[in-house]
Simulated scan of single mutants.
Amino acid sequence: MKVSTIEPAQPLDHLAPAGRIGVVALATDFNIEQDLRRMLPGDTQIFTSRVRNYNPLTIENLRSMAPGISAAADTILPGTQLDAIIYGCTSGTVAIGSERIAELIHQSCPGVPVTNPVTAAVAAFRQLGARRISILTPYTEQVNCEVAELFQRHGFEVLNIAGFGFEDDTAMTFISPVDIVNAAKNVCDAQADLLFVSCTALRASVVLDEIEAQLGKPVVSSNQALTWHSLQLLGYPAPVSGYGSLLQQLPV
């Protein structure tokens, strides 16, 4: 038997030249990877790990996933430089805290910029000049109270918040985009500067343009905000069309 080694004739390709984005997703999330791949430009790429989470979705159960975040981040392309890392849970960020999440990820990936849906949404609201917001979620009233209080602490006036009342993270993805559109029209206060559709599991990205057209104001979703903020962290030089007005706000 002859054994030989072949040298490539061409230089090795540099994949994802505009940026490599790590994602720590919930073990039960059906949607975040599809949403991010749909919205992110083709010269970027996401690489996903998953952290164990627990139903029902309560603040206590959300906090219980914190010990697994560092280990999940550690498995994303070990030895390869990432340009940004996303922690992909809005209510989890509310429960654990943005600073703590960044600390946990930096235990495995020191120096890499970290974002999450709350940090991204706050930056997006400010970019859009919003002060008063309405919020639509799939969560229970208990979780919604925590969500509203957090955004109020960031200086926004939450005019109202309404949720579908789900406690199962996986089931949240099965909510029809048609129901998201109808709920958005009913929930958004006329005095709100924008509507925030919270939760990475909701399939809101495919109807953002439709909701904005009907409301006549910006609509920010968790995954859209993550896309926008990640591209901002990468210094991406061009806007993205088809997923709401926020992604037209690039470069920043």
Rank of each mutant, 00 (worst) to 15 (best):
I101Q: 03
A121P: 00
G92L: 12
R52A: 14
Y139M: 02
A162P: 00
C109F: 00
I105P: 04
G92I: 07
R50H: 11
R126K: 15
A120W: 00
E103Q: 15
N61D: 06
V94Q: 05
M172H: 03
A121R: 00
L57F: 01
R132A: 11
F156D: 07
G92K: 06
V143K: 01
N55W: 07
V51C: 08
G88K: 02
L62Y: 06
T58D: 02
D168E: 15
H106Y: 04
I133S: 05
T93I: 08
N116I: 01
A123Y: 00
P110C: 11
V114E: 06
S49F: 03
V143P: 03
A148E: 05
F151L: 09
I69R: 01
V122R: 01
G165A: 13
E157P: 01
T170G: 10
P110R: 07
I175S: 03
R132E: 10
S98E: 15
A124D: 07
G92T: 10
P67K: 12
Y54V: 07
S98N: 15
I105L: 12
I135R: 01
C145Q: 15
A66L: 09
A171Y: 11
R131A: 13
P117F: 04
C145S: 14
E60D: 15
I59H: 08
M65N: 02
Q152S: 15
V112H: 05
D83S: 11
T137Y: 01
S134N: 08
P117S: 10
S49H: 02
A120K: 02
G155M: 13
G165R: 13
C89N: 05
